[in-house]
């Protein structure tokens, strides 16, 4: 579904990604772990071109999205993204947050979109918040709505950029539960996270990144129980 070849990203002189090769298959949950500054968020943000790669190629569903002629807005509709800081639109109600993009971009009637929006909110148990504004919600609720907002475009893949890092500890669980359900439903997911429990339980494949490269990858079992690379071992010993 996504094929990344020799991806490089520089910010000025600083080289953050030094050649990433990765393939994400349909239905797969890929979890990216690694120390801060390892480039994992930058890697994720390159996948939907929120960061412009310096060089390399990203093929999404058969289209080379890094080519100059490509209109990225089309693929972004198929790639949902969830941010660390939620980034809900404070000028819109919860339901409007969810239905904003489909209303503008899809050829569906207002009623249909609202119905989809309500059923999605229902899925995360927040349908009673439909007419509330985001400022009134807790962090966990905001993030669940951010997930729903991305799902409203019925994407083929969901990108999660440290979705629980800005949450109070007691709210991490409710967001992870939504993500687990999503994974169980067969959604293709790329998740950057520090939640090792989630990585172990839900991940089909773990990528360990450090200093701009993928140092090691494998099943959760391989990475967590039997890491081969000393840097992986070192990182895991610090956080587990």
């Amino acid at each position: 579904m996504i094929k990344v070849t020799n991806l490089h990203k520089k910010f000025g002189k600083l080289e953050v990604l030094k050649g990433i090769d990765v393939e994400v298959k349909k239905g797969e949950v890929v979890v990216v772990i690694g120390p801060s500054g390892s480039g994992k968020s930058t890697f994720l943000r390159c996948l939907n071109l929120l960061e412009d790669p310096t060089s390399g190629e990203i093929i999404f569903e058969g289209t080379n999205i890094t080519s100059k002629e490509n209109d990225i807005n089309k693929q972004r509709q198929k790639m949902g993204m969830v941010f660390q800081q939620f980034n809900l639109f404070p000028n819109m109600s919860v339901l409007d947050n969810v239905t904003f993009a489909p209303k503008k971009l899809k050829k569906l009637s207002k009623d249909e979109v609202n119905k989809i929006g309500m059923s999605l909110l229902n899925r995360v148990g927040l349908e009673d918040k439909a007419n509330t504004y985001p400022q009134k919600l807790s962090g966990g609720q905001k993030q669940r709505i951010a997930i729903v907002r991305a799902l409203a475009m019925s994407p083929d893949v969901m990108l999660f950029d440290e979705p629980t890092s800005a949450l109070d500890p007691e709210m991490v669980g409710e967001v992870l539960d939504v993500m687990k359900k999503l994974a169980a439903d067969g959604m293709t997911m790329v998740v950057v996270t520090h939640e090792m429990g989630f990585a172990k339980e839900v991940g089909d494949r773990i990528l360990f990144m450090d200093e701009g490269i993928i140092v090691e990858e494998g099943t959760p079992d391989e990475i967590f129980s039997n890491p081969q690379n000393p840097r992986t071992r070192d990182f895991l010993s610090k956080i587990l």
Binding site: N48, L50, N73, K74, Q75, R76, Q77, K78, M79, G80, M81, F83, Q85, N87, L88, F89, F100, A101, K104, L105, A146, R149, A150, M153
Partner: peptide, 21 residues
């Protein structure tokens, strides 16, 4: 906040539309 534009763009909303709404 920069994240507002990013969130809109990540949904496939073009820049001008994100600006406006």
């Amino acid at each position: 906040d920069k994240g507002q534009m990013e969130a809109a763009r990540s949904l496939g909303i073009p820049r001008s539309m994100a600006m406006r709404f």
